[in-house]
Design a protein around this nucleic acid. Structure first.
Lengths: 109, 109
DNA sequence: ACAATATAAAACCATATGGTTGAACGACTC
DNA sequence: GAGTCGTTCAACCATATGGTTTTATATTGT
């Protein structure tokens, strides 16, 4: 499970891959469809799909010459479960006050 | 915000750093205290603390010759918020059924 | 003043990551 | 059967990451 979290968080630490997941939230997508919106070579994008698959966030099935990908939420749930350990911290009044201050400072820039 | 999620998830993708956060959940810790439990050089562990700090998950303050670290939950909350976009997927009956099957198969090994 | 402590900083190494190009391959179309 | 489409694979490159050791710098205790 520890290594699973490693893979999951590492897979999520890239905007291209997060965008692909967002696309998969709307339904199955072929590798080509997942790759298209991204400004990089097809092979590069396909590697990202591979990372998502190896992390268990995506499942592939052959459909003719296409390869259809489907979201697998289970690992996302595990990651979320881990994160919620700290819920009490971000819910604490002190932390919320601090967050507000940080936001205000950001707006001033 | 996109780059923030990059940093947050990347910081979480390492068991040493997750363990450090768990330690910080119990209260402030010096860099040395954070480093001690891990089977690596002090400098190596201190680098991990640096990663956590740069990701905004940890705050440092000087206290004599020590450097006390405190958990900052705000970025964890942001990561959690992002993950919960997919909550409906892992709550869906189909996905839950699949999860149960996967677990059963794991138990058979 | 001196030694010990806590940490930072620099240089280095091996491996991983994110990207590229080009070749190969199976599956459809004609 | 030939070409095209969707995809994989291999080789390569630059940079990032996770670790090491050594050196340096405050701070504290004696």
């Amino acid at each position: 499970m520890v290594e699973r979290l490693d893979l999951t968080f590492a897979a999520l630490a890239d905007p291209t891959r997060r965008a692909m997941l967002a696309s998969l939230a709307l339904g199955e997508r072929s590798v080509g469809e997942l790759a298209a919106p991204h400004a990089m070579s097809f092979a590069g994008a396909a590697k990202h799909v591979g990372v998502l698959e190896r992390a268990g966030l995506v499942e592939r099935r052959k459909a003719g010459r296409q390869q259809l990908c489907r979201l697998k939420a289970e690992r996302l749930r595990e990651a979320d479960e881990w994160l919620r350990q700290w819920e009490r911290f971000w819910l604490s009044t002190l932390d919320r006050l601090e967050a507000i201050i940080v936001e205000d400072q950001a707006k001033l820039k």
